Amino acid sequence: MKEQDKFWELSTGKIFKELNPEEEKILNQLLKEKENQKTFAEIEKIHRGLKKSLPLQSASQSRSWEKVSGHFKLRKVHLLKSALKYAAILIVAFLAGVLIKTNLTSQPTPLVYAELKVPLGQMSEITLYDGTHVWLNSGTTLKYPNSFGTESREVFLNGEAFFNVKPSDIPFKVKLKKSEIEVLGTSFNVVSYAEERSSQITLIEGAVRINSVTGKEITRIKPKEQITIPDELENIKIKKVNTDFYTSWTEGKIEFDEERLFDIAFRLERWYNVEINFTSAEAEDLRFSGTVLKNKPFDQIIKAIGILLPVKIKYQNKLGEKDIITISINDKPM
């Protein structure tokens, strides 16, 4: 982390009384520089101004503060047990309304939204304001408010996430690119990346209603059902599935059961931040069954696939870029 970024993070922690003794020591050392002293005084001034403005939910004050100070900072978010201990997750906070209270009118408390962005090759999890727990897969962005209203609980998703929704009489809605999911309390997995042409919802338990972006009901699914929704909302397909294959990633593993190698590669690309290419459709259509563990090095996993399937694998290490893997059919008998 750059020294200036570290200074902003420590300064914010100081104001919200979140520093440990070691961090206090580091901050005091940085404050010996006159420029840092001026910056810290400015931070305190803005913070005092915020305390006089319209009250915010206590759970979101620090996120709002990050935006007002005009800086994006790297925050540490706990990863899943089987992944690395910490990951640098970019949290972008912004105000969705006016913070300043005028003398003419009293404004309602504005919602404060945050965006949690999970880099490729990492995973994260978060508990929302209402107690709903969300696991986020690689390359996923979740936008969520500091609190929910009395009519609905809404979040916005781009990527893959597993939701364990806290039961409530207030509907919980997940806004996707071309549709929305509505539930009261349930658990389900969602895959809805902006660059893909469809969204996929797998229901573990409870009930799910699928709506258009305008809120009009499209259909409903039952536990152990999976729905694939093309972006044009036509040719929607529902099928029975083994839900373990779509939730095991939250435990740091991916299970495959006779899945196309092309589809497996697509998931591995995000999980390990690599690029996988095929030289033929025949190689793409090969089927594979097995379990991939996140804590295993990628080169071990790709070598195992090369041993179990009739393929040749070419691995190119790219310094500072994604590694490139090329898979082709092995013409020689195994």
Rank of each mutant, 00 (worst) to 15 (best):
I302K: 00
K14T: 14
M334H: 14
I305M: 05
L79H: 11
G149P: 01
K303A: 15
G139H: 01
S11E: 10
S106I: 12
G185A: 08
E196N: 10
R63P: 00
I204C: 09
S212G: 15
P310Q: 08
G49P: 06
S289Y: 02
N235Q: 12
T219E: 11
A96M: 11
V165S: 09
L95C: 07
T132H: 03
P230T: 03
S248Q: 00
P171M: 05
I91R: 13
T150W: 07
L157E: 07
G139Q: 02
S280G: 06
E251A: 06
I329R: 04
I325R: 01
E125G: 06
E205G: 14
L116N: 05
T140M: 04
K32C: 09
E269P: 04
L80G: 14
T202C: 03
K332D: 09
I15W: 01
S124A: 11
E115L: 12
S64T: 04
S138D: 06
M334I: 12
N330V: 07
I181Q: 02
R75S: 11
T326V: 10
V174H: 01
E284N: 05
G206W: 10
V155E: 04
I302H: 01
K143M: 09
T105L: 14
I325V: 13
G139C: 03
I325H: 05
S53I: 01
E259D: 13
G252P: 08
T291E: 12
V292G: 03
A96V: 14
F156P: 01
K2H: 05
R220D: 12
F298I: 05
K318A: 06
R48I: 02
E9A: 13
S124E: 02
K34H: 09
K240T: 11
D244P: 05
V208F: 02
F298D: 02
Y144Q: 03
